[in-house]
Write a protein that binds this DNA or RNA. Structure first.
Lengths: 252, 252
DNA sequence: AGCGCTCCAATTGCATGCAGTTTGGCCTTC
DNA sequence: GAAGGCCAAACTGCATGCAATTGGAGCGCT
């Protein structure tokens, strides 16, 4: 029997949603790097909509954590700190353990075939760019979440997976995706077999190793924002009076 | 040592954010029941802003799952199905186990005092309305999440806790909050003692029992939307051709 | 050069206006 | 009296316009 009865969860076809999807994809494929500016005007013009719509889309993406919004400032693609990246992975591990726990032994043959087909696609994409491989790997996890047919779970897994994607582009060294693909296959096998404990363990290990491979170390030099680095020092000052520094250069 | 260095995570003071906060609170205190209509005009007038802003706020709340938005239709306070409510609690259990796992043994004396003070407040509020008790209980959990100082975790725990709040107002029988308060105290004690496994178990049991006390059973009668009830039946029909019924009366 | 100042283009925050869609009542018809 | 069609009011989807804020170029001073 299928994990649950099917139901639609796709986003509506508002102009706002269209822009959200486009930006989301651009971000996770690293066409837009973390820190990239996203002026409302430019987005509106690019997508043929008014600034109102672009603004609304940015609001949605900010709610998902993909975009940072500060009052009266240009929106930028989010630049998670190393710690936030690690936190995201920790949350992701728990959520996806829940996913596979619900799914173990409950998948139809068709669903298993769909999963295998996806991993095949990942395999074929191994020659391509890293960005595509990462996107496909992420989509595998989202596909799993969809099969639980819990819209809330889908939403959270998707969001946190996208965030992880984002951090991979920030902190990851060019990494081989082969073992990840094998781990995907192992997860499918354990799901089919119905061994919940085993598949939870597999998923945990899989995500943990992806995180460890990517988040090499708290390398404060690489892509970190100066203010983040100084934050712990500033915290020791009375929070109102900010330390006066000789012109802090923020990354453009 | 504190769980982590402190940092601000509060929402900005946009008009949009103000409206979001107000609506969120109104919803979780059941001033706005699930299904209540939220026309943009009315909200704008009530809060002294334009429809644009009200609309944006509704978009944010929809992203949090507190509001349902359908194209060209009046926004309504979300009406989660029983299954969605159960899913929300399942996710919440995992997230909050993560919270206490990170917090066990890492709290400062000041933080423990803050937690105790909050539970004292819960105690004092026992005479008041159920809505206030539920809100305070929820805020205890959010306070815990804040102490991890992981913004992502705070966001997810808050969201899912609010959603649970919402479902409590839908499905819960008037329930006594006393045992919940005692469980909160037990969690604080275990956190102070630093017994991670124990406190995870406590949190799991606490949330599970809240869920079980509230989500008594798949009672299709109470507050459920007629279309939800009929959904499983409709699923057995070819999905395109909808069963013709003699004028379905939706809850107004 | 390096630092501080002023001013203007770029950009956001928000309200309003118009067009298209839905809703709910009324009227006709059976 | 019930079913169905019609129409106005209500409401949303979206673009545009205006005021306020920002940040960076240019300029003078040390």
């Amino acid at each position: 029997m299928a994990a649950r009865a099917s139901s639609k969860t796709s986003e509506s076809s508002d102009k706002v949603s269209v822009i959200c999807r486009a930006l989301r994809r651009a971000i996770i494929e690293q066409a837009l790097e973390p820190g990239a500016k996203l002026p409302e005007d430019a987005l509106g013009e690019r997508f043929g909509v008014s600034r109102t719509i672009a603004r609304h889309a940015l609001g949605q993406l900010a709610a998902e954590g993909l975009v940072e919004l500060r009052r009266n400032r240009i929106a930028v693609v989010a630049t998670p700190s190393w710690q936030e990246a690690r936190d995201a992975f920790d949350i992701r591990i728990e959520l996806e353990r829940l996913v596979v726990r619900q799914l173990a032994g409950k998948l139809t043959k068709a669903q298993i075939a769909e999963l295998n087909a996806h991993v095949d696609a990942e395999d074929r994409a191994r020659g391509g760019t890293d960005a595509v491989s990462i996107r496909l790997a992420t989509e595998f996890h989202i596909l799993l979440a969809h099969m639980t047919n819990s819209p809330i779970l889908v939403r959270y897994v998707s969001e946190v997976a996208y965030r992880c994607c984002l951090t991979l582009s920030l902190y990851s060294r060019p990494h081989s995706t082969e073992c990840a693909i094998n781990e995907h296959r192992a997860i499918i096998a354990a799901l089919a077999k119905g061994d919940a404990a085993k598949v939870m363990e597999l998923m945990h290990h899989h995500l943990d190793s992806v995180a460890n491979r990517a988040l090499v170390a708290p390398t404060p030099q690489r892509g970190r924002d100066l203010l983040d680095i100084l934050a712990p020092y500033a915290d020791e000052v009375t929070s109102n009076r900010v330390v006066k520094l000789p012109k802090i250069a923020r990354r453009g």
